[in-house]
């Protein structure tokens, strides 16, 4: 009797595919997560657009505060003080849950851009943060091109 019971139990385990559910540590995309210190979610910026670079296999999201979002969606290139942007870029990785999709992998960088007014001129405050810990980058080479690049992005069509 005991043997029968054991066989039944074993077959039940086989058929129900008895394995523990994956925990949050496996399911959360740790590689792509931003360090807590960056506090991106507390900025409450909106997605202006997202883009991919098929040569570098990177994926990016451009966020903006309400003023930046409104300007980008208005289709105007009017730049005024108070507009704030954040551009986050990841290396892509294959999606383990869907063959046919690539999702964010290692965090590459975050870039912030604030537009401020000084003596009736717009000043562009740009800062780049690099790597998993988003360390502040002191090197300012190429900053002007990045500012231009961020400001040239068109908003995604939203209903």
């Amino acid at each position: 009797m005991k043997v029968i019971f054991k066989i039944l139990l074993a077959s039940l385990a086989i058929f129900s595919g008895c394995k523990p559910s994956p925990g949050a540590d496996v399911l959360i995309n740790q590689k792509a997560s931003l360090p807590e210190s960056f506090k991106l979610s507390e900025l409450h910026q909106k997605v202006i657009t997202s883009f991919i670079n098929n040569r570098k296999h990177t994926t990016s999201i451009l966020y903006g505060n309400n003023q930046a979002y409104a300007a980008a969606n208005g289709g105007t290139s009017i730049r005024s003080s108070g507009q704030s942007f954040t551009l986050v870029t990841w290396q892509q990785q294959d999606d383990a849950h869907w063959f046919g999709a690539r999702i964010p992998g290692d965090l590459i960088s975050a870039e912030t851009l604030h537009l401020a007014d000084s003596c009736s001129r717009i000043i562009y405050h740009y800062q780049k943060f690099k790597g998993k810990e988003l360390a502040k980058l002191a090197d300012t080479t190429g900053n002007a091109a990045r500012v231009k690049f961020i400001l040239s992005q068109q908003a995604s069509i939203m209903p």
Partner: peptide, 15 residues
């Protein structure tokens, strides 16, 4: 929903 946070993106080369 466009005021919400992003939790991921997906590049669906299948479609």
């Amino acid at each position: 929903y466009n005021n919400w946070q992003v939790i991921s993106t997906s590049d669906r080369f299948d479609n």
